[in-house]
Nucleic acid binder design. Sequence first.
DNA 1: TATTGTTATACTCTATAACTATA
DNA 2: TATAGTTATAGAGTATAACAATA
Lengths: 148, 148
Amino acid sequence: MSRRAEQPPRERLRPGALPDLIGYRLRLAQQAVFRDFASSVPGISPGRVGMLLLIEANPGVTQSTLAQAVQRDRSTMVGVLDQLEAKGWIERRRGADRRTNGLWLTRAGRLLLARAKRAIAIHEQRVAARLSAAERARLLELLGRISD
Amino acid sequence: MSRRAEQPPRERLRPGALPDLIGYRLRLAQQAVFRDFASSVPGISPGRVGMLLLIEANPGVTQSTLAQAVQRDRSTMVGVLDQLEAKGWIERRRGADRRTNGLWLTRAGRLLLARAKRAIAIHEQRVAARLSAAERARLLELLGRISD
DNA sequence: TATTGTTATACTCTATAACTATA
DNA sequence: TATAGTTATAGAGTATAACAATA
């Protein structure tokens, strides 16, 4: 018979059913990758770099089209783009349709993005350090089948 | 010569360098999985269910130990546990060390978790619908190597 | 009527710093 | 001195609803 109703808490927790869930494992992997990104590419988040990359590949893209591409509400984009513009990395120009803004990288934005790309290449190598090229490709392919 | 300095925005964006980044693909996959989770297991988030699963597997665990397990600050846990307690799913009991709270599922919490587990099993099947058992295991293994 | 960008507002999740009670 | 839980506070990141300008 135990003297106490309470059991002593373990310092090392039993993981229970969690580790077999794809969503949980995805979250762990993503957190690890984002931590590495934050220390590898300081001063800008993965999401923001993603937007700059999309603007680079699609100069003149409208706010709404970009919002749709990153699956955010167009009202959400306003503040984000305000920040990128305040940093001097993008500019809004009048679009052909006068309701729209076209988004363009500035010279400073192109410079930042070039630097970020080099840092991301190193980050990407570190993230995939324990994967062969074939395994890395396999992972991307399997992730694609999850995302549909 | 073009009549306009502006180029027409494409409705379908060029993805640029994004799709080859592991972090980006992880985020897409996780967003897809979380969307499915939200519609499959209404009323509770993946993170909250994860905590309930950890409490179930480690009855009497302290707040700080749980916080460490889910990689959150212990001050963050307070509000989260307040909510779980307000829902009637967990209770805080006095621990052996009188500074600590032991966390326990209530009967309602065990019922909720049993229901959630059944919903999660279906959710998990849908998420992995396009993966064979071997591919699913391979994905988890590759994710584990990303997470270290 | 519908769309684009915007504003006001609010909600969720998270952290830091400082406090208290215990150890 | 150190640790566990708590509080106050703040900062990201996000969404909804309503509006003006334009299509």
